[in-house]
Simulated scan of single mutants.
Amino acid sequence: MMVVRATFFSLLLAGLTGVSCGAYADEPASAVAPAGVASDTAASATPPSKWKIAFGPGVTVSPAYPGSSKLKIYPFPALDISYDDRFFSQGPDVLGVNVLRDPNYHIGAALTLDFQSRSESDDPRLRGLGGVHWTPKLKLFGDYTWWAFTGSVAMYQDIGGNRQGKTIVSDLYASLPLDSWLFSVGPGFTWADAEYTRTFFGVSSQQSAASKLPTFDTGSGIRDIHMNFYVSHDFSKHWTSSITVVAGRLQHYAADSPITSRRFELNSLASVNYRY
């Protein structure tokens, strides 16, 4: 059994879009001593470390702001640290804990950074709307893997007072390991509450007067539906690379907002990591 666990990446993608992914593979069967072989070697072998550490350079490409037709490129350090599959620091998840965990599932919480933001300087159409700052969020998550299929759900709640409200991201994907390669693909959706949609897609009467955009009232609902694509390749015992692509389409309030200039969303992340 191989367990695939979001990191999204959600890469840094979790901080930019609420989505990210990563993977760890179990030890190959050849690493297990056959039955009946003397235990001297096994007894003298060093037990595996409870620490898993990987780091390296990365780059992510995402919309300049939610609903934007322009893309921005962000370099970032791809960091992935965990201890005993209990405590971890991965991408935008500054510090997290798997309260309940098993080879097949994880349930826990994390302090994460959401880098979604918007500035009036991003587009002339935004002048008069005011800015939206990135914010820290509380993340509650759970995932379950059965055979090659993994289902996951994560709730993000703004705890920085930057009007980003609450979002829930749910994904279902299938994974296929081939030698040193891993491929994952699957659909998902994002739900957002009224505060989130009002902040990023709503236009109040005051904002309308300042920006000349029509007023637009919002509420809670599905923000987007998307497809996740993930590929990783182990070059050696220590070096690995990965690419994540999330292609989505804005829905309902997000799609119909006068702020939105393109309904199609594309987020991608690529990184090269050195694993200890």
Rank of each mutant, 00 (worst) to 15 (best):
V32N: 12
F235Y: 12
K212W: 02
S152V: 06
P136I: 05
S117Y: 03
D256Y: 00
P92H: 02
A25V: 15
V132I: 15
I81S: 05
D102H: 14
G15V: 08
G128H: 09
M1A: 11
T240A: 08
A31T: 03
M2G: 10
A54P: 00
A247C: 02
S175C: 11
S82Y: 00
G56I: 01
F9H: 00
H238A: 12
G58R: 02
M155P: 00
Y196Q: 13
E120L: 07
A154C: 10
Y105H: 14
F229N: 05
P214Q: 08
G151A: 13
D234E: 15
H252E: 13
W146V: 14
I73Y: 08
D26W: 03
L172H: 02
P177V: 13
H233P: 04
S220Y: 02
W191S: 01
P214C: 03
S211L: 04
I53A: 04
S44V: 13
Y274I: 00
V99P: 03
G56Y: 05
I107R: 12
V231W: 06
W134K: 02
W181T: 09
V97T: 02
S184N: 11
H252K: 14
S271R: 01
L11H: 08
N228K: 06
D217N: 10
L111A: 15
I259F: 00
L100Y: 12
S10L: 01
S69L: 04
F76W: 07
